[in-house]
Design a protein around this nucleic acid. Structure first.
Length: 169
DNA sequence: GGAGTGATGACA
DNA sequence: GTCATCACTCCA
């Protein structure tokens, strides 16, 4: 995956991630490939649903980096969320990977792929044992994001991209 | 529908 | 230091 792919706006990158393969190489050498089926875009400080809405902090500073690295953080005390940072440096935006074809749900995804905070800030690539490979171009639909009701009008923004008719493996 | 869980950020 | 909050999943 070309680095410039992730330097574009999250809203442009997100639909193209659908249908691509998320690939995880486990410590024991086993490789898991799964098609990305559901993502959400968090874009800019004005997005109240984004961690970046409160400005730069020690947790979200990774979002301000240049696109092409992972942003992993803990929610609800037990689940890690997997995001890809997008956009230029100093612009906070990221895409949350919510589901793949085999694993539905962002918390389950990271549990099953054994992804934890050690991936935070790592580059998307084989060197970090977690990367993306080209897949098929697919149709998708846009819906409001999940679990962000507190963010007022931003909760209604259709920044969630879901694959339509996922191809068979 | 409701509990559990712990890092994080806000405030003092 | 305290306290409330939270991009979730599981089991009723």
């Amino acid at each position: 995956m070309d680095k410039s792919f992730f330097k574009r706006k999250g809203i442009d990158v997100a639909p193209e991630l659908l249908g691509k393969y998320l690939i995880r190489k486990l410590p024991n050498g086993k490789i898991i490939r799964s098609i990305i089926t559901e993502v959400e875009v968090y874009d800019g400080e004005e997005d109240l649903a984004s961690h970046a809405s409160k400005g730069k902090t020690s947790r979200n500073e990774v979002m301000y980096e240049e696109g092409g690295i992972w942003y992993v953080y803990l929610v609800y005390g037990m689940w890690c969320m997997l995001n890809i940072v997008t956009g230029e440096k100093d612009y906070p935006s990221a895409i949350l990977i919510r589901s793949t074809k085999d694993i539905e749900g962002p918390g389950r995804l990271t549990r099953d792929l054994k992804i934890d905070k050690t991936f935070n800030r790592k580059k998307v690539g084989k060197n970090s044992n977690l990367w993306i490979e080209d897949g098929e171009r697919v149709k998708y639909t846009r819906t409001p994001r999940i679990g962000v009701d507190y963010s007022g009008k931003w909760a209604l923004k259709k920044n969630r991209f879901v694959i339509k008719n996922p191809p068979d493996k």
